[in-house]
Each structure stands twice: as structure tokens, then as C-alpha cells.
Computed example of a mutant assay.
Amino acid sequence: MTNTITPRTTAASTTTGRFWFAADAVISGVNGLAYLAAAGPIADLLGGQAATYRWLGVFMLGYAAVVGLYARSSLSKRTGWAVVVGNVVWVLASLEVALTGMFDIDGFGRAWVVAQALVVADLALMQARSLRAR
């Protein structure tokens, strides 16, 4: 009798993985567009300079495009883990910005940075779980 090893990848885990990476792309894209389109009012609300929000908007749109393409691909685990690591780095950098007030953000801006860091941390966790399930 031969012992065959079946891959752990299931259609459900692949679909779930696609969902979390696609959600990351959509959320990042919407935020990126908002930062580009409303950089001035966002700077007035959160503190900081409008140019910083424009730069963040461009970065987030580029990130959204890359992650969106990944979500539609064959979902290489290595690339998926790179996205997770990128999200963890974003969370840590966001917490540093919130703690130090870097970029001249005010109290409401710090709260916003922490809130978005929590969303990104949750996305990273769900993405990591979906990658481990495959």
C-alpha cells in the first residue's frame, strides 16, 4: 500500500486567503485615494502637512495595486508572507508615529494612526492564518 501525501491547500483556504488580501488592497486603495484627493482637509483634521498625506496616498495606491494583483494570482505563500511582514512593519511604524507625534500630527491624528494600525494588524493576522491553513 502506498502512502500518498495530500496537499493541505483547500479551495476554502485559498478563497479565504484571497478575501483577506483583496480586503487589504481595497482598504489601502480607498485610503490612498482619500489621502490624495483630500490631503489639505485631512492635514487640517489630523495635523501634519498636506504633502505628507499626498506621499502616503501615492504609496498606499501602489501598495494596493501590488496586493490586489497578488490576491488575483496563484497566491504564492512566499509572496503572501512578504505582504504580512510589510503589514507588521507598517503597524510598528504607525505606533512609533503615534507615540512620538512624528510629522506634527495632533491628538486626533495620533488616535487615527493607532486605529488604522489596529486594522492593519488585524488584516496581517487574518492573512497569516490563511497562509498557515494552506
Rank of each mutant, 00 (worst) to 15 (best):
M1Q: 00
M1D: 00
T2V: 12
T2A: 00
T4R: 04
I5C: 09
T6V: 15
R8Q: 13
T10R: 08
T10Q: 14
A11Y: 10
S13P: 10
T15A: 15
T16W: 13
R18F: 05
F19W: 15
F19C: 08
W20M: 02
W20K: 01
W20H: 10
W20N: 02
F21E: 12
A23H: 03
A25E: 07
L33D: 04
A34L: 12
A34E: 08
Y35E: 01
A37F: 08
A38C: 07
A39W: 01
A39I: 00
G40N: 11
I42P: 11
A43V: 10
G48H: 01
Q49H: 13
A51I: 15
T52D: 11
T52H: 14
R54Q: 12
L56M: 10
G57H: 00
V58S: 01
F59M: 03
F59V: 04
F59G: 00
M60L: 15
L61Q: 03
Y63S: 00
Y63G: 00
V66Q: 06
V66D: 05
V67C: 02
V67T: 14
L69A: 14
Y70R: 03
Y70C: 02
Y70L: 07
Y70M: 02
L75W: 07
S76T: 06
K77A: 13
G80V: 03
A82K: 12
A82S: 14
V83K: 04
V84M: 08
V84Q: 07
V85D: 06
V85S: 06
G86K: 04
G86H: 06
N87Q: 11
N87W: 08
N87C: 08
V89S: 04
W90L: 01
S94N: 09
A98N: 02
T100D: 11
G101R: 08
M102L: 15
F103Y: 10
F103Q: 09
D104H: 14
I105P: 10
D106G: 13
V113W: 07
V113R: 07
V114R: 00
V114Y: 00
A115V: 06
A117W: 10
A117R: 04
L118K: 11
A121C: 09
A121W: 08
A121G: 13
L125N: 06
L125S: 09
M126S: 12
M126T: 05
A128E: 07
R129V: 03
S130P: 12
A133V: 01
